[in-house]
Design a protein around this nucleic acid. Structure first.
Lengths: 133, 133
DNA sequence: GCAATACCTACTAAATCGGTAGACAAAACC
DNA sequence: GGTTTTGTCTACCGATTTAGTAGGTATTGC
């Protein structure tokens, strides 16, 4: 039940991008602003770019920006891109689980847990993060 | 955002104990009933016993039972005993986090996420699991 | 005393986490 | 056209966690 450093760093960097929009920010600027290990951040940005969540510009005057409007990027989108499914049990998605005997209804609990988590993570966008007072 | 095999196995075993109550079940019976690797289950039961969630009886005719009424054991209790806090971010509890700049409100999201997870995991008891239709 | 059981210590292979290093490619500026 | 500033790619690495396994020791009931 833990949020990895990777996801945390990614979201922090992306709020910076949302705030800087429409200007670009370099990886180094992002790393400095949020105190993220620069090379680690680079690898995260690469993954986000492959997933179509950020866009990049090479060369001098280059940098990163969000690939979509901040309203259209949810926290769940970021987690799914970096780690896969929001909630897994023993590596499997809750709907794939099969239980027997008195444990049968455990599946329902995991489904309900995932549903509640989605409620928070899919409803909250980067725009919510940067505009909320 | 994953539920470990350990927690899953623990809950499955504990639903068996709840259903068998007030009779004891041996570790081997539990392992067979829920198809859990026997020695792994033993180590889990040891942790649950240290945490005061199950009680054991040694010797022939021995076995395990719940240490409290099934209504008084929540899923959150089991997770906390085996893994610590329900929700952590980069290894820290959400209330210990500090963010700067546009990432400031990320903390609120993690707090809300934890709150929603608690809603499911603290409200659901072993009794709910075994009696639910 | 014997069988069944829980308890304890130690070990381990594989995956994941959280990074780091260094060379290469492209774009802008002069 | 060369230099500087950036992103891109490949590879590696140590520590921790996960998911177990092995084997002996202590209790209890019959």
């Amino acid at each position: 039940m833990r949020v990895s450093a990777k996801v945390d760093y990614a979201l922090r960097a992306m709020t910076e991008l949302a705030a800087a929009s429409p200007n670009l920010m370099t990886a180094e600027q992002l790393a400095t602003a949020q105190k993220i290990p620069p090379k680690f951040l680079e690898s995260i940005l690469a993954q986000l770019r492959n997933g179509g969540l950020v866009a990049s510009q090479r060369g001098a005057e280059g940098g990163y920006r969000l690939a979509k409007a901040p309203e259209e990027i949810s926290i769940a989108d970021v987690i799914r891109e970096l780690e896969g499914p929001i909630a897994t049990v023993r590596g499997a998605r809750p709907d794939e689980l099969e239980y027997s005997g008195p444990a049968t209804h455990l599946r329902d609990i995991w489904l309900e847990l995932r549903s509640q988590m989605r409620g928070v993570l899919e409803q909250t966008t980067l725009a919510d993060l940067v505009t909320k007072r």
